[in-house]
Amino acid sequence: MKRLNGGGEIKAKNQLGIIGLGKMGGNLALQAAEKDIDVVGKARSIKPELEKKGVKVVDNYDSFVSFLKHPRVIYLSLPAGPTVDAVLYELVPSLERGDVVMDGGNSFYLDSIEREGRLRGKGIYFLDCGTSGGLEGARHGACFMVGGRNGGIKMAEPILKGLAVPGGYLHTGKPGSGHFAKLVHNGIEFGMLQSIGEGVALLRASSFDLDLQEVFKNWSNGSVIRGWLVELMEKGLREEGIESIEGYVEDTGEVNWLLQDAINKEVPIPVISQSVMELFKSRMHESDAYKSIALMRHGFGGHPFGKDDRIIKERKTSRIKKI
């Protein structure tokens, strides 16, 4: 066994297939390759920057599946919604009983439960793998919350532990639970972003000559509110500033699902609810709070500054099953 920087242990030359080699999938592939995992990625085009680091990249499912020995472990790094089902439609006929497919995107948890049922009937394990940590986590050690049956978990767990930070892997329970945990996580994230953004607005409106970058650097060292988002705010102020940032905050809509789910469960979530309303307001007028949120979101996930037609489309199509 070989101990890894991520805190887990995996056997040398385990194999992992990754479908979708964008920002998250590409960084995860690089991390895996560095940790003695044979990685094959399926993408629409060849990725020389990944191949020179040891990632095999193919553009068809036959080559992708043939590279992986049975039982296969495959991670989907795809936008939520119809894209996941389209890929499963093409991929599953080439798989064998006992193979494992993990959805590492932000799919709606009821969609994941339905997909798990479909693949279970074919003898294939489907795991809903909530993935957090942004681009940095994918590259250097992520946080995984994974729902699914024990048989599939047993096969995927050694790889996921190796790709996670210490303590950053959890089998949350039955199918759907991983994506549900990630959905709640994203709601909490929204509330935290809004609070920090409002704090920036207050600091900038004060009569004091405050160096905001230094304030956030100070708060990152020992304060009660220290954490990655505070660190990202300091980094964003240092590298980008705030004056030139567009305050339009884009999102893919997952936390809207959480609000609807909370209403159905009659669970009050006023802070998360208001953070979503504030996000909508960001699309109507500029403010320092909204600029700050955009700055932090860009820092952890590479989210765009300003309006993005692709994300707007994803927001409307990424959930299949209705609540």
Score class of each variant (00 low, 15 high):
Tyr125Lys: 09
Phe108Lys: 03
Glu234Asp: 00
Gly151Asp: 15
Leu4Ser: 09
Gly22Arg: 03
Lys122Gln: 15
Asp111Met: 07
Leu160Arg: 01
Ser275Gly: 07
Asn218Lys: 12
Gly41Tyr: 02
Gln194Glu: 13
Gly147Glu: 03
Gly199Asp: 05
Arg238Ala: 10
Lys217His: 11
Lys316Leu: 09
Val215Pro: 04
Ser244Lys: 10
Glu239Asn: 06
Phe180Met: 13
Ile188Val: 14
Ile242Pro: 07
Thr252Ala: 15
Gly167Ser: 14
His140Ser: 15
Arg226Glu: 15
Leu95Met: 06
Trp257Leu: 14
Gly8Thr: 01
Ala262Cys: 12
Arg204Ser: 06
Asp211Gln: 10
Glu243His: 04
Val39Leu: 07
Lys322Val: 04
Val146Pro: 10
Ala142Gly: 12
Ala289Asn: 00
Leu68Ile: 00
Trp219Asn: 00
Pro93Trp: 04
Lys322Glu: 12
Ser207Phe: 05
Gln274His: 10
Leu259Glu: 10
Asp99Asn: 07
Gly104Ser: 11
Ile19Phe: 04
Lys42Gln: 14
Glu90Gln: 14
Gly302Arg: 12
Lys321Gly: 09
Glu214Arg: 02
Ile153Lys: 06
Glu250Cys: 07
Lys13Thr: 05
Gly178Gln: 11
Glu234Lys: 00
Asn106Gly: 08
Arg3Ile: 15
Asp59Arg: 15
Gly162Met: 12
Asn264Leu: 14
Ala294Arg: 05
Tyr169Ala: 00
Gly22Ile: 00
Asn5Met: 12
Leu4Asp: 11
Lys56Cys: 09
Pro166Trp: 13
Leu160His: 04
Ala289Leu: 00
His298Ile: 01
Ile323Asn: 15
Ser195Asp: 11
Gly147Cys: 04
Ile37Lys: 02
Met1Glu: 13
Arg315Glu: 11
Thr252Asp: 10
Lys2Cys: 02
Asn256Ala: 13
Val267Asn: 09
Leu28Gly: 08
Gly299Pro: 07
Leu232Phe: 01
Asn264Thr: 09
Leu202Glu: 11
Asp99Gln: 05
Lys122Gly: 08
Lys2Thr: 13
Ile269Phe: 05
Arg315Asn: 06
Pro304Phe: 01
Gly151Pro: 06
Trp228Leu: 06
His179Lys: 02
Ser207Asp: 12
Ile320His: 08
Ser107Lys: 09
Gly117Ile: 02
Met284Asp: 08
Lys316Trp: 09
Gly173Pro: 09
Lys122Cys: 13
Gly148Tyr: 13
Ile124Met: 14
Tyr290Gln: 03
Tyr89Thr: 05
Val184Lys: 08
Leu119Cys: 07
Glu90Asp: 15
Ile18Arg: 05
Glu198Phe: 02
Leu4Pro: 03
Phe144Ala: 01
Glu49Gln: 13
Leu258Lys: 00
Gln213Ser: 14
Ile242Asp: 03
Asp111Phe: 07
